[in-house]
């Protein structure tokens, strides 16, 4: 069991997962998003190789209206 903090909210997973699996889990597949793990950008090209570990803090962001 691992715990990840995603946009400030803790979530548990049965086993370690990679970022692609996380995106599928969050139903964000195909969305225009960007992801940061522990303060570092995870490039889209590395989503499937980037394994997430217990305690990782993730930020998943989109573009919204702003001035």
């Amino acid at each position: 069991m691992i715990q990840l903090t995603i946009n400030g909210q803790p979530q548990q997973f049965e086993a370690p997962i990679n970022v692609t699996q996380l995106i599928d889990h969050l139903a964000l597949h195909g969305k225009r998003i960007a992801i940061e793990c522990n303060g570092e950008i995870v490039p889209r090209s590395r989503f499937s190789e980037k394994m997430l570990a217990h305690g990782d803090q993730l930020e998943v962001v989109v573009a919204v209206g702003g001035g």
Partner: peptide, 13 residues
């Protein structure tokens, strides 16, 4: 201009 914000998790996909 656009802003960058956390996406809604587990809400309206």
């Amino acid at each position: 201009t656009v802003a960058i914000r956390r996406t809604n998790i587990g809400q309206n996909a």
